[in-house]
Amino acid sequence: RRLHLVCPMNTSPHVDPQKSGHEVWEEFAHSFTPAVREVVEFGKKIPGFRDLCQHDQVSLLKAGTFEVLVVRFASLFDVKDRTVTFLGGTKYSVDTLRAMGSSDLLNSMFDFSEKLTNLGLSEEEMSLFTAVVLVSADRSGIENVNSVEMLQETLIRALRGLITKNHPNESAIFTKLLLKLPDLRSLNNMHSEQLLAFKVH
């Protein structure tokens, strides 16, 4: 039975059956590493992030990188055409990916991407929202919760201010955005389960 790695952070869902599990994993890691580095660079640019202790910077990035990538790469999910574009540039239909063994996670990613895209946020709004996603004081292993909480509150205030300024007649947008945070947590948990299944396999 052929194996597939149905993650758009891979160049392609097809896995070479001649390669060992370790080689497959190495190739996959090679594929997603640049995107992870971009998340770290993004984190560094958040005002106040570099003032957090090193341990907490790493903890926030470890816990939040997947969620930041989901937000940044929402455009890979074409809701209208029901296709996913992998990092290699090829589009695959949901049906094709389903036949490859994709899980409910894929459908949930589509739902999330659709709702986020429908909010019609500007690049600046999306960037600030992404900062709020990354700086969450309730991530596990945070040492200085107060510092992270203070930064989180500052970012949320800034996001509310920006949304209110840009969308004076659409006050629900800010609430809808905050409600995306638990959605992202849920996706993150589903993704972790998928990783476990893949590694065990």
Binding site: A29, T33, V36, R37, V40, E41, K44, R50, Q54, Q57, V58, L61, K62, A63, T65, H191, S192, E193, L195, L196, K199
Partner: peptide, 27 residues
């Protein structure tokens, strides 16, 4: 599987990417 980031090798990538910046701060 309580720490998927470590299992993915993410922690190593993150630490290396942060390192230059952190070294700058220490200086």
């Amino acid at each position: 599987f309580s720490d998927p980031a470590s299992n993915l090798g993410l922690e190593d990538i993150i630490r290396k990417a942060l390192m230059g910046n952190l070294e700058e701060r220490q200086e």
